[in-house]
Design a protein around this nucleic acid. Structure first.
Lengths: 330, 330
DNA sequence: GTGCTTAGTGGTAACGTTTCCACAAAAATT
DNA sequence: AATTTTTGTGGAAACGTTACCACTAAGCAC
């Protein structure tokens, strides 16, 4: 049997309440605190967090629900969230949904059962719409993806702006026939598509946007099909880091050179985008900031539950590399 | 206040015990079960997991302590562990130590406080030595890194063999002066070094092994320093995926061509190793298998606590690519 | 010195479950 | 028909904490 607070009390020669106070808050004489600490060391006592949570009604736990931790974007955000949480004495429950609404629902009820203090969530389009703030009894901060009409605190990239930046960049390098490949399951994909189309229109160009399911294979297939067309675009704007992998693979398989045969610009400044030859032009997302900011929003919300919801919109940084080298004048 | 089992009992018109049985195990009439389920739906009851864990003394939680989830190797293993765990109705607590023994100690006590059912752990050399199986009251499965003398269930790569495979591969391609760069904090690094040196000796060659702290920057610096030497090696054997990034960067910075100026072979078949030009020759680790196998070992241990400890040694797969193209005959 | 606060302590009632026990009714066995 | 087993149910005691209350002793202001 494991040792509990009663055992510590007996060894220290004080009451249970005193032990509890000595280990936490509350007035305790220096002398007694000493004794208690000695007793803790002697017995090897480790407080039972389940009991503590039950009694205190404070779980000190926050949930983090993302699509897939293998996506470096979420990995980085996750690390930032975790670091911030542990620094604040909280734990993190991490869940991967693989963009599956059923699993999202599953994990949402799990969060309720765990009585989490708050939740950081990157939902699919399907669930974000049916998400009711008042149905859950903990605050939610959305990351990466927006919900409808200011119902939730949110931190995300300025996706429209970022897409526009890439379009401008490509146009300034001489590309006109630019296609866009976007993720089908997230609002992020939609926003980036919108920004792309708007920027194209402003430039007097017509864009063509396609969507693909969120996997490397799907992106590779979609890109391959597109690039095999005789009237294939000169450049491809690619919605995220996973897709970039697929697109580069497709280009390699088809024997197309980047950027001579097909220029590529995308999102997520992963380490390898610099190492590939030529380097890929990307929008770098401030991943650490996103994670930290999400935690900050969450803590703020817990402190002032009735404050108006806030939306933190961060700008991406365009990192120009060889994959969008200037087109030789025709 | 949130609704509890008592409320459900009142609504269903039965006792608390009956509700508990209806939701879990135990003989309950079909009729009553129906009523209870209706009451659960009506009230929106969600069981309190802290209370359940406290009372039942079963936390259904397993811990996963790794160095850094941003390392794709651990990300992939983590996903596999998590999937297996959730499928078995268990939760996972994920912790990143950044190879810091102090944080390892911190998280180990956290695991005790959480009363985890079991732990999957990739420890540093420093802590694995002072880890006492009997000091913790839950079973531990080590992954990626070995402990001393069969004290723990373990699943890891056959690192010596893998290093030898790479050496053989390089030698068969005509390389003789081969250096090795290894991670300083893990037993894995040591084992790979040993395998490398042994294989070199067998071939009648003398190896030179260097160690670096576990970060891309450290690896890049170490590689750069090495490659700047006039008598630099013809080929570099690189201990892990993170280091590979650093080494390729260093080569690029110094303007060295791969493989003409420096051949590269390493560990971890990350997607980008195929996309970089030339592709990198690597040992692919069976990451999903490692995660699944670790969970299997853990469950087995829980079922039969006194069975002898087992060590699952998996073989890597050598993926040959352009970074180790055959040396032109001198 | 009398009242009034405050620091320090112990006893005990929660927190929301599950599980043990007792018991009645029904079913199965003799 | 008498006994034993099984099935279904409710009451109440845990699980290991914290938080509330009551109390003493000491300090302080007057």
């Amino acid at each position: 049997m494991t040792v509990n607070i009663k055992d510590v009390a007996r060894v220290a020669g004080v009451s249970v309440s005193t032990v509890s106070r000595a280990l936490g808050e509350g007035p305790v004489s220096a002398e007694v605190r000493e004794q208690v600490q000695a007793a803790v060391r002697a017995t090897g006592y480790k407080p039972n967090l389940s009991a503590r949570r039950l009694r205190s009604q404070r779980t000190q736990t926050i949930g983090l629900i993302v699509a897939d931790i293998r996506n470096p974007f979420f990995t980085a955000v996750g690390r930032a969230v975790e670091d911030a949480a542990y620094r604040a004495g909280m734990r993190v429950i991490l869940c991967n949904t693989d963009e599956d609404p059923a699993r999202e629902a599953l994990y949402l009820t799990l969060m309720q059962e765990e009585r989490v203090t708050g939740l950081i969530f990157a939902p699919t389009r399907a669930t974000v719409d049916r998400l009711q703030a008042d149905a859950l009894d903990f605050p939610i901060v959305l990351i990466d993806r927006a919900g409808p009409g200011g119902q939730f605190d949110t931190v995300l990239l300025d996706n429209r702006e970022a897409s526009a930046t890439l379009v401008d960049h490509l146009v300034s390098r001489g590309y006109n026939r630019i296609g866009g490949l976007f993720g089908a399951t997230s609002t992020t994909g939609v926003e980036r598509r919108d920004g792309y189309l708007a920027a194209m229109t402003v430039r007097g160009l017509t864009g063509e946007a396609r969507f693909a399911p969120p996997s490397v294979e799907a992106a590779e297939n979609a890109a391959a099909a597109w690039l095999r067309q005789p009237d294939r675009p000169q450049a491809l704007l690619v919605s995220n880091g996973l897709f970039l992998t697929g697109v580069v693979k497709a280009a390699r398989t088809l024997g197309l050179r980047i950027p001579q045969d097909i220029a590529v610009a995308g999102f997520d400044n992963e380490p390898w985008t610099e190492l590939v030859e030529p380097g890929l032009t990307v929008i770098e997302q401030p991943v650490e900031t996103i994670g930290r900011e999400a935690m900050a929003l969450l803590f703020q919300r817990l402190k002032t539950p009735d404050a108006p919801t806030r939306k933190v919109v961060l700008s991406g940084r365009c990192v120009a590399r060889g994959s969008t080298a200037a087109l030789p004048r025709a």
